[in-house]
Nucleic acid binder design. Structure first.
Length: 426
RNA sequence: GUGGUUGUAGCUCAGUUGGUUAGAGCACCUGGUUGUGGUCCAGGGGGUCGUGGGUUCGAGUCCCAUCUUCCACCCCA
């Protein structure tokens, strides 16, 4: 949970609407006020939508505008991402941290959106950030992490795209459309989805002039840095090109092949100022990891000249993708390696001693909690894919033995309980 | 936020032009097996048909409202 002012204004206009606001606790209307001049003139006499009146009640929205009352009734919100709260944390604890400061964080975030495929109201982000260093080595390292993660997970066709906000800013300046910069960003980012025609249409509707649109189209179709070099003449844009060039060169030396420059990558979040990164594996389900460099985020909270860069893995989308492609190993849900069957009170307490020893030896084990019928206990072990079941009934207990059953082959044999761990380890 | 869509057993779904006691598969439970699962056989429990109104002799089926689900847009992990 964050103060609402910590979050607003960092994610763009649309982003602000998607922040999950929390109604003040207690008598939340106590301090609510609304200016006279924004009060909608609704009275019983001039109310034009009488059909909307239900009995003696009518919707409050006809009386007040929500954006006018909102500041009075909500002062907290659920975190929209992990980056902005992280920046707030860094500023708050700046005296206790050593810079460059690195951290990872895995937590849920919330979006006040209508859920749909690949989009959740609550989902987990896994963030990795380095704050307090301008070095591009951080970008290189983060991209290397992304490459390693998706390779390890078996997502074979992932693609890492990078671009640079300074290149985009340079483009906007070169084309004299600086005032439409955010329109450029949101439109360009849809290139893969709605194509050239769609992007043109959107830019046109936002009032971008014809020459600007032509320039943007040429830019979006560029496939390499050298293609855009001549389109961008100002120093800011040139710096962006140089930075991306260096990152790509370093990655090549490291043998990372999954990353490439993508002119149409733009990213909507408004706090990015440098490199921007996005990972896709299946275009339909959107990005599964994204991030970038932000120069001013800590500045907003009162700590100047600290640059940070980070990426965020979308855990739920990655999970969906892996589930869809059957990438989870069959033994992923095997947690118990050995189950002691329960034959009754005396046998169970005997097994409890063995259970402690087995666990101390690093083997995940459990004792069935009830002295249920064997059929039920074995069904349980089977359903949970527990590979071994240990049986200690009256006979075994008397002889200090354990009967082990291999659930896969069905074989079973009896060993001395003192040999149990050796048997399991071997 | 805008447009559409869905709702029947724990899950996936049938249910004809409105007509007796709303079905199936899977899952679950019991027994066949007194200390043995994954197969098989026999039997069993479980649904105010999302909710609230209405039309009708009669509503899972038609009408209205409301909630919910999913999808697209916007935007994003």
């Amino acid at each position: 949970m964050e103060s609402i002012e910590t979050l607003t204004g960092k994610y763009g206009d649309e982003g602000d609407k998607l922040i999950f606001k929390i109604l003040n606790s207690g008598d939340f209307l106590k301090n609510a006020r609304i200016r006279k001049d924004v009060l909608k003139d609704v009275t019983a006499n001039n109310f034009s939508k009488m059909d909307l009146i239900v009995g003696d009640e009518y919707p409050l929205q006809f009386l007040v505008r929500d954006n006018e009352v909102l500041p009075y009734i909500t002062e907290k919100a659920l975190r929209y991402d992990l980056t902005v709260p992280f920046a707030r944390f860094v500023v708050q604890h700046q005296n206790d941290l050593t810079f460059p400061f690195k951290r990872y964080q895995i937590q849920p975030v919330w979006r006040a959106d209508r859920p749909q495929k690949g989009r959740y109201r609550e989902f987990y982000q896994c963030d990795v950030d380095v704050i307090g260093s301008n070095s591009l080595l951080n970008e290189v390292e983060l991209i290397q992490i992304i490459d390693e993660v998706f390779t390890a997970l078996g997502v074979s066709d992932f693609k890492i795209s990078i671009n640079h906000r300074k290149i985009l800013a340079g483009l906007a300046e070169s084309l004299s459309i600086g005032s439409n910069f955010s329109d450029l960003v949101t439109a360009l980012d849809k290139w893969d989805k709605i194509g050239e025609e769609g992007v043109c249409k959107e830019l046109d509707s936002k009032g971008v002039h014809r020459d600007g649109i032509v320039g943007i189209m040429k830019f979006a179709k560029a496939s390499s840095l050298s293609d855009i070099d001549e389109m961008i003449q100002n120093s800011e844009g040139k710096q962006g090109i140089q930075e991306v060039d260096k990152i790509l060169n370093d990655l090549e030396k490291l043998g990372v092949k999954s990353c490439s420059f993508n002119a149409s990558l733009a990213r909507g979040l408004s706090y990015y100022t440098g490199t921007i990164i996005e990972v896709t594996a299946n275009e339909a389900s959107g990005s599964i990891c994204a991030g970038g460099r932000y120069d001013d985020l800590t500045g907003i909270f009162g700590m100047k000249d600290i640059s940070g860069v980070g990426v965020s893995f979308g855990a739920d989308r990655i999970y969906d993708l892996m589930e869809e492609r059957n990438l989870f190993p069959a033994d992923a849900n095997v947690s118990t390696e050995l189950m002691f069957a329960n034959f009754g009170e005396a046998e169970a307490s005997f097994c409890f001693g063995l259970l402690k020893e087995v666990r101390a030896a690093g083997i995940n084990a459990e004792l069935y909690p009830d002295a249920a019928k064997m059929k039920k206990q074995f069904s349980y072990a089977d359903a949970k894919h527990i590979p071994l079941v240990a049986m200690v009934g009256a006979d075994e207990m008397a002889k200090n033995e354990v009967t082990l059953k291999n659930m896969d082959s069905g074989e079973q044999r009896t060993v001395k309980s003192s040999e149990l761990i050796k048997e399991l380890k071997g």
